[in-house]
Amino acid sequence: EPSQADLDALLSAVRDNRLSIEQAVTLLTPSSGGGSGGGSMDAKEILTRFKDGGLDRAAAQALLAGRTPA
């Protein structure tokens, strides 16, 4: 399960175009075949909204942490 520091680094990389959204989703869902963790939004949607400015960093982190299976 990614830590808050991992999520923060991942969000920074996506925002700075050092990591594509697809690459980030793969890192967030290493063994689930890329499927959502059952959250209301999947990781790709969360990351896309964050990059487009629709979500701030704290909200994106909380959503990603919340949808990651324990």
Score class of each variant (00 low, 15 high):
1 E>N: 12
2 P>E: 11
2 P>C: 15
2 P>V: 08
2 P>D: 12
3 S>H: 09
3 S>Y: 13
3 S>W: 15
4 Q>T: 15
5 A>Y: 15
5 A>M: 15
5 A>W: 15
5 A>N: 14
6 D>M: 13
6 D>L: 15
6 D>A: 12
9 A>I: 07
9 A>T: 08
10 L>S: 01
10 L>R: 01
11 L>F: 06
11 L>V: 01
11 L>Y: 02
12 S>Q: 09
12 S>G: 05
12 S>E: 11
12 S>N: 09
13 A>H: 04
14 V>H: 00
14 V>G: 00
14 V>Q: 00
15 R>M: 14
15 R>G: 05
15 R>D: 04
16 D>P: 00
16 D>G: 06
16 D>R: 06
17 N>V: 03
18 R>W: 06
18 R>D: 05
19 L>Y: 04
19 L>H: 01
19 L>R: 01
19 L>N: 01
19 L>A: 02
20 S>V: 02
20 S>Y: 02
20 S>N: 04
21 I>D: 00
22 E>K: 05
22 E>F: 06
23 Q>E: 14
23 Q>R: 08
25 V>K: 02
25 V>C: 06
25 V>N: 03
26 T>Q: 14
26 T>V: 11
26 T>K: 14
26 T>A: 15
28 L>I: 06
28 L>E: 00
30 P>Y: 15
30 P>S: 15
30 P>A: 14
31 S>Y: 12
31 S>H: 11
31 S>P: 11
32 S>A: 10
32 S>F: 12
33 G>P: 11
33 G>R: 06
33 G>M: 11
33 G>W: 14
33 G>I: 12
34 G>E: 11
34 G>P: 14
35 G>A: 11
35 G>I: 08
35 G>P: 14
36 S>T: 12
36 S>N: 11
36 S>M: 14
36 S>V: 12
37 G>D: 07
37 G>C: 13
37 G>E: 08
37 G>R: 07
38 G>D: 12
38 G>A: 14
38 G>T: 11
38 G>K: 11
38 G>W: 08
39 G>Y: 09
39 G>F: 12
40 S>F: 14
41 M>E: 07
41 M>R: 05
41 M>F: 13
42 D>V: 06
43 A>T: 12
44 K>L: 08
44 K>P: 03
45 E>T: 10
45 E>Q: 10
45 E>C: 12
46 I>Y: 02
46 I>W: 02
46 I>F: 02
46 I>E: 00
48 T>S: 08
48 T>A: 06
50 F>V: 02
50 F>G: 00
51 K>H: 04
51 K>Q: 04
51 K>I: 05
52 D>S: 12
52 D>M: 14
52 D>T: 11
53 G>T: 02
53 G>Q: 03
53 G>Y: 04
53 G>C: 04
53 G>K: 04
54 G>L: 15
55 L>K: 01
55 L>T: 02
56 D>N: 07
56 D>L: 05
56 D>E: 07
57 R>P: 04
57 R>L: 12
58 A>H: 06
58 A>F: 08
58 A>M: 10
58 A>Y: 08
59 A>G: 06
60 A>M: 02
60 A>N: 00
61 Q>W: 08
61 Q>R: 14
61 Q>N: 07
61 Q>A: 14
62 A>D: 07
63 L>H: 03
63 L>V: 02
63 L>K: 03
63 L>G: 03
64 L>T: 01
64 L>F: 02
65 A>E: 09
66 G>H: 07
66 G>F: 10
66 G>E: 06
67 R>V: 11
67 R>Q: 10
67 R>F: 13
67 R>Y: 13
68 T>K: 09
68 T>P: 12
68 T>C: 13
68 T>H: 10
69 P>D: 08
70 A>H: 03
70 A>F: 02
